[in-house]
Structures are given as C-alpha cells and as structure tokens.
C-alpha cells in the first residue's frame, strides 16, 4: 500500500494531516459549488419575478440552458444553478483523484479516476 496509508505505522497526527491534505480541495469545491449554485438560483428566481417569466416544465438540453443563460433569461440562470449543483460532486471527486496521485497513492488515485469516468460516462451516455 502507499505511503499515505495511515495509522498502523505513523500514528493519529500524521493520519489527520494526510487526510486533511487529501480532502482539502474537495471541501473547497463543495463550498464554492454550494454558494455559486444557490446564488444563481436566487438571482434566476428574482429575474423571473421582475420580468414575469415562467419556468418551463423541463430544464432542456445543456445547449438550451446555455443559450437561455447567455440571454439573461430566468430559466437559463436557474438551469445553470441546477447544473452547477449536479456537477459539484463530480468536480469534488476529480480534486480527490488529483490529490491521491499527488500523495503517490496510485491505487486509490486510479480507483477515484474510474469513478470520475463512470460519472462523466453517465452524463455523456444519457444523451445517446
């Protein structure tokens, strides 16, 4: 097993430091994902009320959401907010994979990369 493998030889403190190094970026991604998503949804709802725009009964394709967002329409702004939230765990896991590799923990780096690929695949293949 890798050098980051914890308590059995290196003690509690070292383990906590290693764990914090591994997950620090993931925590930051989750925090930013949360704030950006919440801000976009609240702004989208306000824009909708001010302009009297109604929400559709389906978000639409990513391309449609992007076009609506660029034109400043409420459904586009809300849609991007929803997509940011959906994609936040994906980016968080990607950050975890990078940190496993940085810590020279190849085995778990590869496993985490596999999860990222499965999740990207689930998004991509949904459109086929």
């Amino acid at each position: 097993m890798s050098s980051t493998t914890p308590d059995t030889t290196h003690g509690e403190h070292r383990h906590h430091v290693q764990q914090a190094t591994l997950i620090g970026d993931t925590i930051r991604v989750y925090e930013w994902g949360f704030y950006i998503s919440l801000a976009l949804i609240v702004v989208g709802i306000i824009v909708g009320f001010v302009r009297g725009e109604t929400m559709p009964d389906s978000l639409g394709s990513p391309g449609h959401v992007y076009r609506e967002f660029i034109h400043g329409h409420a459904d586009g702004i809300v849609g991007v907010g929803v997509l940011v939230m959906i994609l936040t765990p994906l980016v968080g896991v990607l950050a975890l994979a990078v940190n496993f590799f940085r810590a020279r923990d190849r085995q778990f780096g590869l496993l985490t990369t596999l999860i990222v690929l499965i999740l990207i695949g689930s998004v991509a293949f949904s459109y086929i």
Partner: peptide, 13 residues
C-alpha cells in the same frame, strides 16, 4: 440525476 435530466424529467418548477 444525469439520467433523469437527459430524459427531460428534471422539472425546475
């Protein structure tokens, strides 16, 4: 969520 989104089953309302 990705599968339901692609199938148009995410209703923002």
């Amino acid at each position: 969520a990705a599968v339901f989104y692609a199938d148009g089953k995410i209703d923002p309302q």
